[in-house]
Computed example of a mutant assay.
Amino acid sequence: MKTKYLSLYSLLFFISCSQNNDIKNLYTNESTSIINIQEDLKQISHLDSVFNDVTFLPFETKEECLISRISTLKISDSLIFINDNRRRLLIFGKDGKFKIQIGQSGEGPGEFLDLKDFIINKDNIEILDFKKIETYNFEGKHLSTKRFDLSDPKKYCNPDHFNYSPLGGYYLWGGTFGIKEFGAEYDRYMMYHVNNDFKIQKGYFLIEHGAGSSHNRFTKYNDNIIIDPHFGDYNIYQIDNKGIVSSRYFLNFGKNAYRKKIPIPKKNQRETYEDLSNYVLSFNDFFETDKWLHLTFQYQNTVFSALYNKEKEKCFLLSAANKNLKPDEIRYWGAYTITKDQLVMPIEANWLKIEFDRLSPQYMKKINLNQYKDIKESDNPVLVFYKLK
């Protein structure tokens, strides 16, 4: 699997022929790298091909911090921040002990209607709510409220992700929820740059169809903001420290890519559409280190993880659905975030208990898994840390 660097004109032709829609890529340049993902998705690698070590961290289980499902997970220094999809932001220590809940759901001062995304700063946290941003310190004290309204009919934006812009203000990722009409005449974009007064400065990624979700739309690598791709696009985009948006990588899925415009079902019309599950239509959970790229994608209702070694220019495939897992290999469930050279995934306690019956005693001892044999199915989730080679 080789990474190919094409000329600008060759790359534009390649993308125009290979993308799964006909949106023109205005952000491609000659530095965009082509990453080839193997077409034979039955070639699943062993976990040891990618990771040096696997460790576990159970979250403390107490009444005030019971977690049903983790929507967003972020790690900063010695703290772990969780949006548990119940309009709560919970903070745990690196030892798994519960520390504090930040803010609460409500319509009063310092409360939020929704917890869509959050940014962790040195000494405070900003929470993206509906038409406002609430700021708290790490002790839970409310510091400020910033309100905005971007409900112009032609530039509607109800953001579900945000990030600071190097040009000042924020990047807001709007999604398509609530938007019924798409197209250039509406001048609606997936991402907007707004200044500190929340005035729109520029729009990026014209909306032409509905978009999928993402755990982390924005991540960081070196001085770049990396954008987890939107539905119907095979590019990984970056924003550099000058605010320039460009395609960083193009993912070539070969015959598994959809090469036509994604059909949008029309109201009150009976039409037959081909089975799109036979194609890779989108991917997410993109993370980058100095040596590795990580992403997940779905094909024929099976979720795969692709890990690309930049030094060896080789792609490795893993899948939690792999039926041929050996007793010396714990399942890889994917990644919600990354900390240094470790991919991190929260899993249900029950998932770990299932692995106890499959793994060999020797392997259980090797990864120190026996210490968690007494875990209960009703306990809080467990973080799995996969250390990249």
Rank of each mutant, 00 (worst) to 15 (best):
Y234S: 01
G243K: 05
G210L: 12
N241S: 08
T219A: 10
L276A: 01
K202T: 15
I207P: 02
N224R: 10
K202Y: 15
R217V: 09
Y279A: 06
F287I: 02
S282L: 11
I244H: 12
Q201S: 15
F231R: 06
D275Y: 11
V280R: 00
S282V: 12
I264S: 13
N252V: 05
F218K: 05
D275I: 01
I226E: 07
F304Y: 04
T219M: 09
P229R: 02
Q300V: 06
G210K: 09
Q300T: 01
D290L: 14
V303F: 02
E274W: 03
F205E: 01
I262F: 00
N256G: 11
F253Q: 01
R259S: 06
N235I: 06
Q298R: 15
Y204Q: 06
F231V: 08
E288A: 05
G254T: 00
F286K: 08
Q269I: 07
Q201W: 09
F205N: 09
H209Q: 11
I226D: 03
N241T: 08
A211L: 14
T219K: 02
G210E: 12
F218M: 05
N222G: 15
D240C: 12
N222P: 11
Y279S: 03
I264R: 06
L293E: 08
F253R: 04
G232V: 11
F250H: 14
Q201T: 07
H230V: 07
P229T: 11
N268W: 04
Y299F: 12
Q300L: 01
V245I: 15
K266L: 02
Y249H: 06
Q201V: 13
K260S: 13
T272S: 09
N268P: 05
Y234A: 05
